[in-house]
């Protein structure tokens, strides 16, 4: 089945089985393996990507359902070797250990801060509660997102988050 969508600013036209999930399409058809698969039933959040501005589980969606969509994955965040402020904050606060849940965490946090840069700790925890991490106990992650808020507030000179 032919479908076409935009991933990280680039248009992809793919011919896929109707049953192919979006996450498998991203990973295996397009080779964007930064998005991970942790449960395949929409609980763990490792596969979270941003679709038309909203965080979504790429394991619960078929690739053909994304036709015409704008998709952002973890690969879109950094500028080459330079970490985005959110990523740098994750590193500073030791918000990751094994790194497997990290792409999903980053995309959920990125979507949250892009729309609610003034959110408080409770709101951050609520938004992240759909992303499971088995290593950190979440404290470093929440601290990292709290600190990264500054980069998402009112446009600053020197670029976007």
């Amino acid at each position: 089945m032919q479908t076409k969508f935009n991933v990280n600013g680039k248009t992809h036209a793919v011919d896929v089985e109707p049953r192919l999930t979006l996450v498998d399409c991203l990973r295996y058809t397009l080779g964007l393996t930064g998005t991970h698969v942790g449960c395949e039933h929409g609980v763990c959040g490792a596969c979270t990507v941003i679709i038309d501005g909203k965080p979504a589980r790429a394991c619960l969606m078929l690739a053909v359902q994304a036709d015409g969509a704008n998709i952002e994955t973890v690969e879109s965040l950094a500028d080459g070797d330079t970490l985005a402020p959110l990523q740098a904050s994750f590193r500073r606060h030791h918000a990751l250990q094994c790194g497997f849940c990290t792409p999903g965490m980053l995309m959920t946090a990125h979507a949250l801060l892009s729309t609610e840069p003034d959110c408080d700790e409770n709101r951050i925890r609520e938004a992240l509660s759909g992303n499971l991490c088995r290593c950190t106990g979440y404290i470093g992650i929440v601290e990292a997102v709290l600190e990264a808020r500054a980069a998402y507030k009112a446009p600053k000179r020197g670029g976007t988050p």
């Binding site: 393996t33 590193r91 790194g99």
Partner: peptide
């Protein structure tokens, strides 16, 4: 390790 994990390059 974080430099690759954070950029989806693990």
């Amino acid at each position: 390790e974080d430099l690759r994990f954070l950029r989806g390059r693990g």
